[in-house]
Design a binder for these strands. Sequence first.
DNA 1: AATTCGCGCAACCGCAATGAA
DNA 2: GTTCATTGCGGTTGCGCGAAT
Length: 281
Amino acid sequence: MSCNRSRMLKNIGSSNSYEDGSELRRGPWTLEEDNLLIEYINCHGEGRWNSLAKCAGLNRTGKSCRLRWLNYLKPDIKRGNLTPHEQLLILELHSKWGNRWSKIAQHLPGRTDNEIKNYWRTRVQKQARQLKVDSNSKKFLEAIRTYWMPRLLEKMEQNSSVTSSPCSSSISTLETQKFTVPSPEKPLENNSDSNNSSAKIPEISGDLTPAGKIFSAKSLEDDYYHVDIPTYDNMQELESQDISISDRQVAEVDWFGEDLGSTFWNTDELWHFRKLEEIGV
DNA sequence: AATTCGCGCAACCGCAATGAA
DNA sequence: GTTCATTGCGGTTGCGCGAAT
């Protein structure tokens, strides 16, 4: 929800009472409250949220102040839609750690655990519902690996070719050359044949850029294919590369104008996926 | 034009972990 | 060692908005 939209909310929040009789506010934050919180933290720093709430003149719980600051007001919060790169990272890290939102968020600078959690619930679980499978099931993970991730990599390639950065285009070429996207015509053969390596996310070897390292993957023969989880350090290294800049640029020009979430599974893919289920793959 | 419905997201809640007194 | 306050985390709720009917 945008800041403006937040302020447009008609509900100005309910309230409970403090022991001293003053009102304890709940619900959406007002512009005035935001300003009070920002000014106070700018002067005194964050932490000790309960006393902060009182000293700042906010009739809010410390918890509420902390949440508002961390999820919305903090200066380094990145607003806007998640880039394909970030989405891919979320999918990867979730397959490794599950619902450890805060841990996942640590690897996406500027993104909050709440945002990632919301993304998972609204976008990813929506895909699972469409496929009529549990979002934690092996089948769904397989579908993510087979369809979703290659699409994200395609998107990354498209984005980087638009911006035509030498660095970013080389990265995406490196990745997508080896990443076989099942064609709508022949996905069953590829996916059902365990000896056919074209259905696998292949091992990426050689000298990789930071982005390439992040997404280097082993064969899908493992239940859960391995990815090198980026450390915060190489995320920062990545942030300094052209690829991340171009990602951001693309995001800013409404990359999500096309609803990525709802367009991942076209009719053919859904049909093939259900066929895979029928034959017990 | 009015109503319904689903989605996205900010905010809240409960619980566990941590640390100070 | 115990109690209490604070912090952090994951799950859930509720509301505005826009699309569909």
